[in-house]
Amino acid sequence: MELLSKTEYKVAEHVTRGLSEKEIAAQMFISPKTVHNHTYNIRKKWNARSAVDICRMFILRLDNPRQFFATIICLTIQFHVIFNGEEMDLRRPVRTSVRVRSGRKNKD
């Protein structure tokens, strides 16, 4: 498999993060057509058929893929807690009793 250019590597990284071609173009300050051409070249070089294949190959080429998967698992748990938090009571319970102030009362 061929090595990617620096720009193709950055595009592959953004694809792995789940960004669309328009979002990648906006972040990299290039045309969406240029991003499309880069993804086409990546697919050709890596013999990938889809963005999923690009993601898989990008992750497997990392120095430490286990660290990447550990991060994804943590993010998935956080995502679950954030969006399913209505079902979980994560906050302290609301006080229902009336607070009585201690100390001297003004006798004016």
Rank of each mutant, 00 (worst) to 15 (best):
F83T: 04
Q67W: 02
K33V: 09
F79S: 15
F79R: 15
N47P: 01
E13R: 14
H80K: 01
T39F: 04
I59P: 00
R91W: 07
L4W: 02
R61G: 07
Q78T: 15
V15G: 02
G18W: 06
K45Y: 11
A70T: 07
V15I: 15
K44Q: 10
P32S: 01
A70W: 14
H14G: 02
L4H: 06
I77C: 03
A51M: 06
K22T: 09
M57A: 09
C55G: 01
V11L: 04
C74G: 08
V100T: 07
A12Q: 05
E21K: 10
F58H: 14
R95Q: 14
K107Y: 11
R17D: 13
V98N: 06
Q67D: 07
T96G: 14
I30M: 09
D63I: 00
I73E: 06
M28G: 03
H80M: 12
I59H: 02
S5P: 01
I42A: 05
R104G: 11
S97W: 08
K10L: 15
R104Q: 12
E87A: 07
V11H: 10
L60W: 01
G85T: 03
V98I: 12
I24R: 04
E21V: 05
T76S: 15
P65R: 07
I77Q: 03
A26D: 09
I42Y: 06
F68T: 05
K44C: 00
L62S: 08
S20E: 13
D89N: 14
K107N: 10
I42Q: 06
S31G: 12
I54T: 08
F68H: 13
V35T: 05
E2S: 11
L3K: 11
L90D: 01
T71D: 14
A25M: 02
P93E: 07
I30A: 02
